[in-house]
Amino acid sequence: MTEQTPPIDAPPQGERPSLSQALTGGEDRRLKVVAVHAHPDDETLATGVALAHHAARGDLVHVITATLGEEGEVIPQDLRHLEGDPALGPHRAGELHRAMAALGVEHDYLAAGSSRLSKPRWRDSGMAGSEAAAHPRAFAGAPIAVAADLLAERLGILLPDLVLTYDAQGGYGHPDHIQTHRVTVAAVASLPERLRPRLYAVLTPSSWAREDRAWLAEQVPAGTGLTVPTPDDPFPPSVVDDALVTHAVVDPAVVPDQVRALREHATQVSVRDDAAAPYFALSNDIAARLPGREGYAEVDPDTGDLIR
């Protein structure tokens, strides 16, 4: 981790308070933060800035992962033999373990009981329409009530102040991400009022997304083999009108920690640092920026709606 003296909350971006400001009202109080994700690497890609920021701030940060990501596409040629092989899940578990150490956070899986937290109950469902979705242990097909009960049990032990997960569209529509959102909302809603954490979904203001694409167009050199999205290319569902994003974690100082964690997810992520700041690509070879900022909106667990 980068050495920093807590607290390190960045000033609000425009009118957006940080998550810790929302929970503490500016008091110098340590928090318990839990992020719930579908596969290894999702935690660092979607919430890596918040996780590293809160860990550096001195908060207790914990990640819960639903599956081993058995259906992931493998990028490096020397690891390509793992794609579609039963060994990919355990390999990605090792990547996740190292990435969590790089971020300085604790981790376990959504599993059947505290004695089995090292092994998830469900498996990666693959993209919509894939054969993996028909697997009897596919997470997207898990009964929401059953999975929510397991997560609620874990949250009742961890007693977080704050829970982070995807928006209702799962960020970009992956069935396991959508399921994770549903399960997390149901789990938080099932807790007694006195134990309920605040629940936030990751969302990106459209102005940030446009800025990131402009940055990529300037900074990603030709010959990388990567595609830079154009201003007219569609955005994923998690890119929304600026007014819907009510909170932000803005901390460029933790990007080196996020980069170190992403490098541990070598089967899934290719990190490049041949520009003014690092950027990355997944197996689709589309360049994406690491801007050191994440947007969030609070979710009402009783309705699943965003709180405005």
Rank of each mutant, 00 (worst) to 15 (best):
T2P: 08
E3K: 14
E3I: 14
T5I: 09
P7Y: 11
I8C: 09
G14K: 14
P17I: 08
Q21N: 10
T24W: 07
L31T: 02
V34E: 13
V36C: 12
H37N: 14
P40H: 13
D42C: 11
A46C: 05
A46H: 01
T47C: 12
A56G: 10
D59W: 09
H62M: 07
H62T: 15
T65L: 01
G69I: 01
V74A: 11
D78Y: 10
R80N: 03
H81C: 04
L82P: 05
P86S: 12
G89Q: 00
R92K: 12
E95G: 02
H97S: 07
R98E: 09
A99C: 01
V105A: 13
D108Y: 00
D108Q: 09
A111N: 07
R116K: 10
R116G: 07
P120C: 08
S130K: 09
S130T: 15
S130D: 15
E131P: 04
A133L: 15
A134D: 12
A138T: 11
A138S: 14
P143R: 13
I144W: 10
A145Q: 11
V146T: 10
A152D: 06
A152W: 11
A152L: 07
E153A: 09
E153K: 07
G156C: 06
I157G: 10
P160M: 04
L162W: 03
V163T: 04
A168K: 15
H174Y: 09
P175G: 13
T180K: 07
T184R: 00
T184M: 04
A187G: 06
A189C: 01
L191R: 04
P192D: 07
T204I: 02
S206R: 08
S206Y: 01
S207P: 04
R210L: 05
R210N: 05
E211T: 10
R213Y: 00
L216K: 06
L216Y: 02
A217F: 05
V220I: 09
A222C: 04
A222W: 06
T224H: 01
L226Y: 01
L226S: 01
T227P: 00
T230W: 00
P236M: 08
P237M: 06
A243V: 14
V245A: 11
T246I: 09
V249H: 01
A253V: 13
V254G: 02
Q258R: 14
Q258I: 00
R260E: 13
S270W: 04
V271R: 06
D273C: 03
D274Q: 12
D274R: 08
A276F: 03
P278F: 06
P278Q: 04
F280N: 00
A281R: 06
S283T: 12
I286Q: 14
R289G: 02
G295T: 04
D300Y: 11
T303R: 14
D305E: 15
